[in-house]
């Protein structure tokens, strides 16, 4: 039953739309880990998630979830998988109690006690219509429904977008609790990188339908760095060594994907650690190589 190494395995998946292509993407989500799936709006995160869930058919490639083929064993997978979307997909006139009754019939392993526990913990009224819930309450209800059938894999598509910091923090704690079980895994798509920085074990960057970086978060953060220098020093940096560079009135900041190598090669320059957000921004501008950004207090003086 649990004889799989990766909760999600995606190999060479291509999905073509009119004007957009998910281009031969591959990445794995190891069992018992949480992967942050990062990219700007329209990068292909939702298309990837829909492909994983077989909501849309893929053109080529292979997807395995919990060690099973995502098409041939679709129902077995979906029995052991939970999904949280950015918007609540339940009708406004239903109540939390109604949803409990419906899901009880849909999932073999639905656990009323767990569901009731989440409703109490989130202080969600059972008889109030969902239409009268706040956005935070709606998201909590969706999470309560997702986590009450002992799912092994949780797939989230922009689940924390639009929530206030308090609710977001509360929800992130729930996910960390969920991950206490080593059989549980999470794929969490978001463009709020600070959330992923807090909880993700690994990250995958996607942009314009292509995977740019995929690996353990600590390795990704360790390997990448920002060279902060004057414009004169920047002229001496080999363009092949950088992903892209932000130019301001005061200097330049260039992202490198191999910090150790860059530190050796450009020993006189300051190379600072970076964040997931910065990595995303620099990768998004990779085709331009150089881009003009607003002045940043951290940029080195000329």
């Amino acid at each position: 039953m649990n004889d799989y190494i990766n909760a999600i395995e995606i190999k060479g998946v291509t999905k073509k739309y009119d004007g957009f292509t998910l281009d031969n993407i591959s990445f794995d989500v190891p069992r018992g880990s949480i992967m942050g799936f990062i990219g700007q709006n329209g990068a292909g995160k939702t298309t990837t998630i829909r492909s994983i869930l077989n909501i849309i058919p893929i053109n080529s490639g292979e997807i395995r979830l919990l060690g099973m083929d995502h098409i041939k064993q679709e129902m077995e997978i979906k029995e052991r998988l939970a999904v949280v979307f950015d918007e609540l997909p339940f009708h406004d006139l239903f109540t939390a109690r109604d949803m409990g009754r419906i899901f009880k019939g849909l999932y073999e392993k639905w656990d009323d006690t767990v569901y009731q526990g989440y409703l109490d913990r989130f202080q969600l009224p059972q008889k109030k219509k969902i239409g009268q819930f706040s956005k935070g309450m709606k998201m909590k209800l969706q999470i309560a429904c997702a986590l009450s059938h002992h799912a092994e894999l949780l797939v989230m598509d922009e689940a924390t977008t639009g929530l206030d910091p308090v609710v977001r923090s509360e929800i992130l704690d729930i996910f960390l609790e969920y991950l206490q079980d080593e059989n549980h895994s999470i794929l969490m798509s978001s463009h709020i990188t600070s959330d992923l920085e807090k909880i993700a074990d690994s990250v995958t960057f996607i942009d314009r339908g292509k995977i740019l970086v995929s690996g353990y978060k600590d390795d990704v953060l360790e390997n990448h760095g920002v060279i902060k220098c004057s414009k004169a020093d920047y002229k001496n940096i080999d363009r092949d060594d950088i992903i892209s560079a932000r130019l301001t009135d005061f200097g330049a900041e260039a992202m490198v994907s191999d910090r150790a190598a860059a530190a050796k090669k450009y020993s006189g320059l300051l190379i600072e650690p970076t964040t997931l957000e910065e990595i995303m921004v620099y990768y998004v501008h990779r085709n331009m190589k150089e881009w003009v950004g607003s002045a940043d207090s951290r940029i080195a003086s000329p």
């Binding site: 077989n54 129902m75 979906k78 029995e79 979307f85 997909p89 849909l106």
Partner: peptide
């Protein structure tokens, strides 16, 4: 859309 993520 959501119902396609359910075991139905």
């Amino acid at each position: 859309r959501y119902s396609y993520a359910l075991p139905v």
